[in-house]
């Protein structure tokens, strides 16, 4: 079923339940995101894509990457309320990962410099869940997941042990917007998540995964790299 909604004053017809962000894109309106990827199910974790959605004269802030289009919805993607809140979200992200170049660039672009929150220290992971979803939905092995909750939440392999299902494809490394997954045996900079994949690690195979018997399909790797390049900051 098609529905009609208004985004920033422009009218658009889309299939019902299309995420607002997709509808906005069709109008050429871009909304900042960190945890969104067209090839993956939306997750709504970074909160950067918030917009103001109106029903009658009541409005609420919603995440546009997973908010479904409904008949008669009016959306503002850059109202004062949106910009203010988005700035605060960015401040929180910057407070969490002050050393991540991509986050710093994005913050600068949004005019966020001073951070009014206490620094959390050497974090690189923003818990966007892209790696978890990519490993599940693109690669289909679910080698990693979130663990714990609240401030202890992190991404890891079950029990933090070497995974016996990870195929070392590197998809998680490519899709991670903060570059915090290192495919290496050496511990990286502080706060990095190290995936020690032994001989399976991308780049560490002396034969570039070209052997007849190699489980890693080169075409698949290339496809992944291309598909994922678009979300890297």
């Amino acid at each position: 079923m098609m529905v009609t909604l208004t985004i920033d004053g422009q009218i658009i017809h889309v299939e019902r339940h299309t995420p607002i962000i997709e509808a906005a894109k069709q109008l050429g309106i871009s909304i900042p995101t960190l945890c969104h990827h067209e090839g993956l199910q939306p997750f709504g974790s970074c909160r950067l894509c918030i917009v103001e959605a109106f029903r009658g004269n009541r409005s609420k802030l919603v995440t546009s990457c997973n908010y479904p289009a409904e008949e008669g919805l009016t959306v503002l993607t850059a109202s004062d309320r949106v910009l203010e809140t988005r700035k605060m979200v960015m401040e929180l992200l910057l407070a969490r990962c002050p050393d991540v170049p991509g986050i710093r660039r994005l913050a600068e672009k949004m005019g966020v410099e001073a951070v009014g929150f206490k620094k959390k220290g050497d974090q690189w992971c923003i818990l966007c869940g892209l790696c978890v979803r990519a490993c599940e939905q693109m690669v289909g092995v679910s080698a990693i997941s979130f663990a714990s909750r609240g401030i202890e939440r992190e991404v890891k392999t079950p029990f933090g042990m070497e995974s016996d299902v990870c195929i070392g494809c590197g998809t998680c490394t490519y899709i991670c917007p903060t570059g915090c997954i290192e495919m290496t045996g050496d511990p990286g900079p502080p706060g990095h998540r190290v995936m020690d994949m032994g001989d399976l690690a991308l780049g560490s195979c002396s034969n570039n995964h070209d052997c007849e018997t190699c489980d890693i399909d080169q075409g698949f790797l290339d496809k992944m790299k291309r598909a994922i390049e678009s979300v890297r900051l």
């Binding site: 679910s142 979130f146 079950p158």
Partner: peptide, 12 residues
């Protein structure tokens, strides 16, 4: 069920 899913629930 992937072990990662079981682990996720068990730690959540």
């Amino acid at each position: 069920v992937p072990l990662s899913r079981v682990y996720y629930i068990a730690t959540f």
